[in-house]
């Protein structure tokens, strides 16, 4: 009995404390550092030369390489998460407007099995073309989505009424353009293009020369 009592009084608390400590350590342990996919994280062992002149030259070159990345002229930024479009420089926002970007929806043609995903592309683009009074040339998916037959005549694809007054082409068939559904601005409802209200579109069109960089994230 006495041995049991000793065991209970001494060993049990010791075990309990040890268990708590082990649990705390396990809970608090540092997770192994994961290197992000596609990035060289902290393997940057490039060191500056010890010679001052060489080091200065190397540092100046690095600064220039970084500065060169930011466009000298205003650039467009499209935030697909909050559905906002900006015209900005490094220090100043010149235009901030609500827009609509791709829904991410999927369409499969039950007849041919063709598949489309309506996302706004992410990355770096340039304005290639500026169009006034643009007409929409309906792609096949526009008919398939409506359950209509894809027309054979090119003229049956053209619609002059949906893209607003202007369109800015940023490549691969994607445009920043107007909309007749201004009440839906701010919602991800497009097939990948970027829709803008007429006043903001007018302002953006006037401020944007061909060659302007477009950053979409």
């Amino acid at each position: 009995m006495a041995v049991r009592k000793v065991l209970l009084i001494v060993i049990l608390p010791v075990f309990t404390i040890a268990a708590i400590v082990l649990f705390a350590l396990a809970f608090n342990r540092e997770k192994p550092e994961v290197i992000a996919e596609g990035y060289t994280v902290d393997t940057l062992l490039t060191e500056l030369p010890q010679d001052e002149k060489k080091a200065q030259k190397e540092l100046t070159a690095a600064r220039k390489a970084l500065d060169k990345l930011t466009p000298a002229k205003p650039y467009i930024v499209i935030d697909t998460h909050a559905n906002r479009i900006y015209m900005r420089t490094k220090d100043k926002i010149l235009l901030d407007a609500r827009c609509s970007t791709g829904s991410g929806g999927e369409l499969i043609d039950s007849v041919t099995g063709r598949r489309w995903i309506f996302d706004t592309p992410r990355g770096i683009f340039k304005i290639r073309r500026k169009v006034t009074e643009p007409w929409w040339r309906k792609p096949d998916w526009a008919f398939i989505e409506e359950g209509e037959e894809v027309p054979k005549k090119e003229s049956e694809r053209l619609d002059p009424n949906v893209m607003g007054d202007y369109a800015l082409d940023f490549g691969d068939g994607f445009f920043i353009h107007g909309t007749i559904y201004e009440r839906l601005l701010g919602v991800n409802v497009t097939h990948g293009c970027v829709r803008l209200g007429s006043e903001d579109l007018d302002s953006l069109y006037k401020q944007t020369p061909i060659g302007t960089y477009v950053y979409i994230f």
Partner: peptide
Amino acid sequence: ELRLNGVLVW
């Protein structure tokens, strides 16, 4: 900040 290709986007 959020940056893309060294450019400030947000």
